[in-house]
Computed example of a mutant assay.
Amino acid sequence: MEFFADYAGFLLKLVSVALVIGFLLTMMSGGKRKSQPGSLSVTKLNEHYDAMKVELDRQLLDKKALKSLEKEKKKKEKLEKKEQKKEPAVAESADKKRLYVLDFDGDIKASAVESLREEITAVLSVAKPQDEVVVRLESGGGVVHGYGLAASQLQRVREASIPLTICVDKVAASGGYMMACVADKIIAAPFAILGSIGVVAQIPNVHRLLDKSLIDVELHTAGRYKRTLTMLGENTDEGREKFKQDLEDTHGLFKRFVSGQRPQLDIEDIATGDTWYGSEALENKLVDVVMTSDAYLVSHYHETEVVHVVYKQPKGMAERLGLSFFSVVEQKAVSWFSRLAQSRGY
């Protein structure tokens, strides 16, 4: 009991200090809040791939074999430089061919679209028609407007006449597939999950519980369909029917969008809300190739400059403070419970 009392006291002091510091920092920066630009990170994946290969050769080959390999490599580089001098135009053209790799890890709000829009803007400012944009997409879907915006960002690549490839290693369902279908080519791992072309919504209603407790809830609206279903008030059959109709309308919009991007699909057969694994998705024409994103990128390392582009959003003061606070609490909690476990022989 003494341990828990001490621990509770420590947490209370820590929370109090964090709140005071947070309040002071917010007051200090309140009049200076301006949107701070994020940072763009560009990594050449070819160099990373070559570095791993060189390290493995160094660890696995004996001195004689390693020396022979290095000699052969230098000979090859010398020959390439000689060819470039003979045909500079061809060499220059080859140098300009790039494959831009972007990542989209989607949550229910499609929050990653904020970084995606910046990354696409940056890539389109330098990309050429012979280049390619590859998006490694992972998402189980979410809100319609969020994923609709994300799909629209990908359409910017298509409109710029830059080839767009979507790679799905795990899941691209519902809103995730809405994004994927924009691509010129969809590549999925054998056991990736794709599809779920449907719409779902649920709203809890506690009206009967409140009514039993003699609690009234008043809801006033202007407009017949300003509110169809509510969480607290009594829902009507008319409101339910309108809500269902809205879902059907959204589903129809979803189907038209997908069929417009991939006319080869039998949309009425596919748009049931069902999902398929990669190999099955290929049979149903939801994807074009069954392959992992790693295999696809490796196949381009020898002929294309592959660059990974990441836009990092700036963190606000409150977010940074929150992360620091929870980090301190976690470390202290682990320390205290470790001591407790040791003292009791756990």
Rank of each mutant, 00 (worst) to 15 (best):
P163Y: 03
T165R: 15
I166Q: 05
I166S: 10
I166D: 09
C167Q: 09
C167P: 04
V171M: 05
A172M: 08
S174H: 04
G176R: 04
G176C: 04
Y177K: 12
M178G: 11
M179S: 10
A180V: 10
C181H: 05
V182P: 12
V182Y: 14
A183D: 13
D184I: 09
K185N: 12
I186D: 13
I187M: 07
A188V: 07
A189H: 10
P190Q: 12
F191T: 11
A192R: 12
A192E: 10
A192W: 12
G195P: 09
G195Y: 05
S196A: 15
S196E: 15
I197N: 08
I197C: 14
G198Q: 04
G198M: 02
V199K: 06
V199C: 11
A201Q: 02
A201D: 00
A201N: 01
P204V: 01
P204N: 05
P204I: 00
N205E: 05
L209D: 14
L209T: 02
K212Q: 14
K212N: 09
K212A: 13
S213F: 07
S213P: 01
S213T: 01
L214N: 15
I215K: 14
D216R: 15
D216E: 15
V217F: 13
E218K: 14
E218T: 02
E218R: 15
H220L: 11
H220P: 01
T221P: 01
A222R: 11
G223S: 10
G223A: 12
G223T: 06
G223C: 09
R224D: 15
R224H: 11
Y225D: 14
K226A: 15
K226W: 05
R227S: 08
R227C: 00
L229W: 07
M231Q: 14
L232H: 04
N235K: 04
N235C: 08
N235D: 14
T236W: 07
D237L: 07
E238S: 07
R240I: 06
E241F: 00
E241L: 11
K242M: 04
K244H: 09
Q245V: 03
Q245H: 06
E248T: 06
E248I: 03
D249R: 15
G252F: 10
G252V: 07
G252E: 15
G252H: 05
L253C: 05
L253K: 10
F254V: 03
R256W: 04
F257E: 02
V258R: 01
V258G: 02
G260F: 01
G260C: 00
P263M: 02
D266H: 07
I267R: 11
I267D: 04
I267L: 08
I267A: 07
E268P: 08
E268C: 01
E268K: 11
E268T: 06
E268M: 05
D269C: 05
I270W: 03
A271S: 08
A271T: 03
A271W: 01
D274L: 07
W276G: 02
W276H: 13
Y277E: 14
Y277M: 12
G278V: 03
G278W: 05
G278M: 01
S279F: 12
S279N: 12
E280T: 02
A281H: 11
L282Q: 15
E283D: 13
K285Y: 06
K285Q: 14
V287Q: 09
V289T: 08
